[in-house]
Amino acid sequence: MDIKPIEPGAIELLDMYYYMRLGRAIEERLELEYKGGKLPSAIYLGRGQEAIEVGAAYALEQGDVLAPTHRDMISQLPRGLTAKEVFTNHYARANSLTRGKGEANYQGDLKRGLFATVSMLPDFYPVATGAALAFKLRGEKRVAMPLCGEGATSRGDFHESLNIASVLNLPVVFVVINNGFAYSTPPFKEMKLSDVAERAHAYAIPGVVVDGNNIIECYLEVKKAVERARDGGGPTLLEAKTLRMRGHAGHDAAKYVSKELIREWAQKDPIDRFEKHLTNQGLLDEAGIKDMTGRVTQEVAEALKFAEESPYPEGQEAVTDVYRE
């Protein structure tokens, strides 16, 4: 089946640009607050991954489900996650999506097709595969998309998920964001393969490698896989190559990453590249970039203020909602 997705139009492109910028602005502010000792939460930043985060999520339709990891807050923005929700959750407030029960980016909302991640990865590979099974059993044309890093592809449930999704021909798009480091461990210490996508061959499904810093390529390739899955063509394993531009978490200065490597990937910054592309297309100019900076800066400032002014949960809430009554 040869699926050629429609190239995104101006509205879509500028929409994606907004989410990338918003994601980066939120993370920059979180980093600032974390370093200032104001955050009760750890932070897990996806800086440098904005192209695949937004491109993959943007390729989904309403009704599809996305299972991000703790590093994929930015992927949730096109699905409707707001800056206020990001900050209230990091600030552990009563009005956050997890009501103070889940840290950092561990929020979710099934109404928007967003699973709330856990720390064990890739736990949502099987879970999303099960969601896809539900869609198939009910004859719904919906697609499930779990995300994980290259590190989690060493685990058994990664392979179990790909295998079962292949055997049952389920509508899943498995996205691996290969960001160069699993905490401090580089891929060559974890696998002999140079491309994670090669793992797809073992399960007789397509394996695709994309430039994880090129949002248009990310979007188009993911869209192809999503539409193939939706049309009954089965699962795809898609690997986006990028670099995690920060440590594993806020406390980690990532001294194990060479300065040369950071410099090399800074040259390939996904937002800079996209801005150049949009400018060349005549969709963006200096004034437009400045406007966007103003827009996201204001949104983040309002969200931070809202979170800081929001109340904490009462202590006794610790024992509510353990069970569904």
Binding site: V65, L110, F115, D123, F124, Y125, P126, V127, A128, T129, G130, A131, A132, L133, A134, F135, L137, R138, A144, G156, D157, E160, S161, N163, I164, V167, L168
Partner: peptide, 22 residues
């Protein structure tokens, strides 16, 4: 639905299907 020997996989799948209303 018959499953391959992959308990972690299909227990996780059951959880995912349950979250989708099954």
């Amino acid at each position: 639905i018959e499953m391959p020997i992959a308990e972690e996989g299909f227990i996780g799948m059951a959880i995912g299907a349950a979250l989708m209303g099954m």
